[in-house]
Amino acid sequence: MTILLFGVTKDIIGSSTLSMPSSSEFGSKKSKTVKELKEYLGKMYPELKKLSSLAVAVNNSYANDDTIIDNFDEIALIPPVSGG
């Protein structure tokens, strides 16, 4: 599973993409939801939990907390940006 990072999530995680190998604690789970992914990432990167609004896209579509994801999906973490 590949996670593309935008805006401040890139700064928090320290790179522009994040790979989740299927052997990892999260990757090996069979049925996963966006909510679980957020919780897992929140544990690894506590700063992420502070974001009031963080959109998650699965295969280029906005996903809700209960959207199911699998290991072949492309995920994007999209916080709002404010600069002008």
Partner: peptide
């Protein structure tokens, strides 16, 4: 339109029955 660093975001909101800014980012950071 909004920018940060080397990135930018673009959308049209509240147009022809389409979604709003809050549909994407419900709560203000």
């Amino acid at each position: 339109g909004a920018i940060q660093g080397f990135e930018g975001q673009l959308s049209v909101f509240n147009y022809q029955g389409g979604p709003t800014y809050r549909c994407l980012f419900p709560k203000m950071p």
